[in-house]
Write a protein that binds this DNA or RNA. Structure first.
Lengths: 284, 284
DNA sequence: ACCGAGGCTTCAGGATTTCTGATGGCTGTG
DNA sequence: CACAGCCATCAGAAATCCTGAAGCCTCGGT
């Protein structure tokens, strides 16, 4: 007797669960209905539990079936991710990928290099911008795929969590001017909003010393020691200092990263890159 | 040509990757070395990419192999979870399960009921206590399995994230006495510490009006309107009120939930229940 | 009440897949 | 240079899995 589940069996099972009938599931997976019947029996043998109860019209899941379905979906999702990333022989073509500029340094090199190793013929055009701009561009169809920041309390499955931190010049003194001088990026970004929210909640006075969409301009101001800023932890360059919370600055929330794409009409290449991000980002 | 990966193939592949040699992997999975060779070829056909480069001494993974290995481990972990939860025909015996008392109301009923449906012959002894006590009890061998809270910034894979919130009596006025009156639970818990940390960071004065390990005692004090408390969101009973942050109370962090067990020498029953928690908790 | 449609299971035969054991080639080591 | 360790390949055998036919059951319409 087999001791492992089988992807094909699980896929058939998922179809059965969705359609409520072996015969309809059989159509979808392109096999005879007898085959489906035998597959389900096999699955029940492997699991050692009944999964379906046969009614006159079709079948319904047992308790064990319901639980297995949860696992089956998870396994199938991982499996499809794996195949999307690796299969299809040589992929080629061009992909327009949007990446928040604060993550570009931290993630892009590893992401692009490892994907290029897998699929050397693919050209990836990277658009770096603040998340809100990426979103609008994506929605206008100007991107195939975008990595975006979202608040942590959102519903979606978060790929990775990043801390927001206060940063200042490395040699900056420990004294903080009372109207705190801030350098802030794009006004719609999470870090911008989180900074202001944290300060006003803590009742601190502040003054915006610099505001613009340009990350490098912002960093220049911070390096000059004229202001401090809020960045995602991964974006802090080595020559800046993370200001510990002992400095009297309010705590900042964490934010989440997700990948945006329409799973429905994405090309194999888009799927492959999405799967690559999903599997790599959590461990980078 | 097959269009799906196969769990057995992936398991063989994982063994090959770990041992660096087909022959050793063959021993471990109990097949001939020729079989392993053919399996790996099959896998390469399915994926459409070379996975191994044959050296004189053994094999090493290609770039594609490395990426597949990541996915393979994920898939195998899900698969083993599925089998652990469902298989083995009828499980029976007794399991000592530790659950933080603040989650007991929210999760235990669903968790125990659905597991009982799967394995009616199993008896689960539940120990409800604050996390630190569960941990010490677990470490003394007094529990087979425990659900525990940990800070969100920990390394481990978090099963679920819960918000900490301020709660007060439903009809409590909106005025807060300046030395805030707090009711706090076990002094080592995350909620206790988070409450004090948040208040002192915000510079609020407070006074501890009640402190004890008993959650129900604590709730009684809060109901009386004599004090406010910090609870995990899931633990707030319907007759208490969550104090919105507009009330001038400092923000509280979120915390994470993980399951504690020694994967090494856990019984099938323990594994089954752990797998059950892992698959159910995120969606409860 | 009866009949037909739709649905599931079972069975036997055959096609396909996958294993084993043997053989041979290759690569480093002593 | 011979040997040991390792992998690929091959042919036959074994196991698996599918198809198509036949049978049983339930439901709904006549």
């Amino acid at each position: 007797m087999a001791v492992s589940l089988d992807i094909d069996l699980l896929r058939s099972f998922a179809h059965v669960a969705e359609s409520g009938a072996l015969s309809r599931a059989a159509e979808r997976v392109g096999r005879s209905q007898a085959a489906l019947s035998m597959q389900m029996k096999r699955l029940e043998d492997i699991v050692g539990q009944p999964l379906l109860t046969r009614t006159g019209r079709g079948v319904v899941l047992t308790v064990h079936g319901e639980r297995l379905l949860v696992h089956a979906r998870r396994i199938l999702a991982s499996h499809d991710d794996a195949l999307a990333e690796l299969s299809g022989g040589r992929l080629d073509g061009t992909l327009r990928f949007g990446c928040p500029d604060d993550y570009a340094d931290a993630f892009l090199p590893a992401l692009l290099r490892s994907f290029a190793q897998l699929h050397p013929a693919v050209v990836i055009e990277v658009v770096c911008a603040a998340t809100p701009r990426l979103v609008s561009r994506y929605e206008r169809g100007g991107l195939d795929l975008a990595l975006v920041s979202i608040p942590l309390d959102a519903e979606r499955a978060i790929l990775r969590r990043e801390a927001l931190v206060w940063v200042g010049a490395k040699d900056g003194g420990t004294d903080r001017p009372d109207p705190l001088r801030l350098a802030l990026g794009d006004p719609d970004t999470l870090d911008h909003r989180a900074a202001l929210a944290a300060l006003s909640q803590a009742g601190r006075n502040y003054r915006i010393a610099y505001a613009s969409g340009s990350l490098s301009g912002l960093l220049a101001v911070v390096r000059s020691g004229q202001a401090i800023a809020v960045l995602t932890q991964a974006a802090v360059p080595g020559d800046l200092r993370i200001l510990s919370r002992t400095a009297g600055l309010p705590a900042l929330p964490k934010i989440g990263l997700v990948v945006r794409l329409e799973e429905r009409h994405a090309s194999p290449l888009t799927r492959a890159f999405a799967a690559h991000i999903r599997s790599l980002l959590p461990v980078l």
